[in-house]
């Protein structure tokens, strides 16, 4: 089932997640390859978002959420008590469904992470980080003359790229994207997808999406979730051309979900 030529970056083993008494994920086993885009598809409420929130332990913020099982990044377990979530989240960045720039200037939005981690020693270095992050997110040319304007003044697509730049600013290795284009129009979506394609050269990307077309366009590997279980994982080509599971076929052809 695995693509053999790639190195595994993230490995989830027997992962179970509970929200209070309700179980959201059942025995998830999933390998995510390095420097590749892995798309997670499935109907709403199937646990895709819950799964990627396990990779940077974002579920910790939710009181009633309990995670059991193992997630390894580069062979190191992240669900141990002594793992520092700050370092983990520095390594595993996240982009959310709705663009959520801080109510600060564009510059401060990017500088936020580096300041917290003490990444820059002086203003020059910080300027550099901001510029490279915005360039990587393909936003630099559009905002370079108005870095002091509030991040919220940008358009939806620009805001989302700002959030991607913010995630890139702390030099992560993995970027989690939770339906990053669901609030955007097709043109902005195309830009983000182009960007994802570019970013996969240097980052491992996991993207949750409701759009089959998007999964086909951007990902190399696709996992299909249904009711908290993983039904099928394979190369994107295989999943969309010749799925092994009947349910996967029904879902991608739009017969349910």
């Amino acid at each position: 089932m695995e693509l053999n030529n790639s190195k595994i970056k993230i490995k989830a083993k027997n992962l179970n997640v509970f929200y209070g008494k309700k179980q959201a994920l059942f025995d998830i086993n999933l390998d995510i390859n390095q420097k590749e885009v892995t798309a997670l598809i499935g109907p709403s409420g199937c646990g895709k978002s819950t799964f990627i929130r396990c990779i940077n332990r974002m579920n910790d913020v939710i009181d009633i959420c309990k995670v059991e099982g193992s997630v390894e990044i580069d062979g190191a377990e992240i669900n141990e008590k002594n793992v520092d979530v700050v370092t983990l989240r520095e390594k595993v960045g996240m982009v959310f469904q709705k663009p959520n720039p801080f109510p600060k200037s564009i510059y401060d939005n990017i500088a936020y992470g580096p300041i917290i981690h003490g990444a820059a020693e002086n203003k020059n270095q910080m300027d550099n980080i901001v510029e490279t992050s915005l360039k990587k997110a393909a936003l630099w040319d559009e905002v370079k003359d108005r870095l002091n304007e509030p991040g919220t003044s940008l358009s939806g697509g620009q805001q989302q790229r700002l959030c991607i730049a913010r995630a890139l600013s702390v030099n992560p290795e993995v970027i989690l994207m939770d339906e990053p284009c669901s609030a955007l129009d097709p043109i902005a979506t195309a830009k983000i997808e182009e960007l994802i394609d570019d970013l996969k050269k240097s980052y491992t990307i996991v993207i949750v999406t409701h759009s089959m077309a998007q999964a086909v366009r951007v990902s190399q590997k696709t996992g299909f979730f249904h009711l908290g279980k993983i039904i099928e994982v394979d190369s994107t080509e295989k999943i969309f051309k010749n799925p092994a599971n009947k349910m996967t076929q029904d879902y991608i052809t739009g017969r349910f979900g």
Partner: peptide
Amino acid sequence: VPQSLREGSYAVGATKSETIKKVVIPA
């Protein structure tokens, strides 16, 4: 203050008090 702002801050590795001080309170 929307939860999404807090999560955005946690996602770049901010701790709870950093998030409160730099994102939640200003907002």
